[in-house]
Design a protein around this nucleic acid. Sequence first.
DNA 1: ACCCAGGGTCATA
DNA 2: TATGACCATGGG
Length: 215
Amino acid sequence: MKSLKARLEELFEQLFAHYGAQNWWPAETPFEVMLGAVLTQNTAWANVEKAILNLKKLSELNPQALLAMPRELLAEAIRPSGYFNLKAERVQNLCALLADNRELHKLADLELRGQLLGVTGIGPETADDILLYAFQRPVFVIDAYTRRLLGRIGWIDADIAYEDLRQTIEQALAGDTEYYNEFHALIVIHAKRVCCKQPRCSDCHLSTLCSYPGN
DNA sequence: ACCCAGGGTCATA
DNA sequence: TATGACCATGGG
């Protein structure tokens, strides 16, 4: 029986061999990463891109500017990303944390995670996206794709708690920031393949890794 | 017309 | 602790 570490590393190799380096997260600045992390909650990335583009036309992308913006105006700009009233509030909650604590980058990983989770609207996955892709901390992000993929392969229980799964994988891999960055990006890119969105996945080179819910 | 998307909060039992 | 309602747009 192969160890979890060996199986995960093999999975990484297969994905990397097919898709190559992804250079994530798609954003120009760390703050834009954080913004995207909130806006993409339960939302297709294409809609988030529209929202961010709208916002860039109205304002500089920094915490002070978005805090100064009337919430209604912010909400209207991010409308395409869905839940726009809710997300306008969440974005400003995050901005408030960033604006009145300029030393966040000096905090240890766990402290920083605690600060992020303290923001209403930032849950475990959004916090980990921010930790990994904005603050370059070694965190393995668990999202719906990751659960679906690992669940489908039969490596995890469907109902394992977020923290338990994250720590199980991090303990097994003991990877660095760059490795976790690439790994999560590959899982998402793989899940977005057209063939992985079909009920049956026959032409996928990695058919056994297809993450469509019904497979 | 339906389903889903790079989730999270809050009220209730 | 564990469900369920709610948030809302856009593409397939």
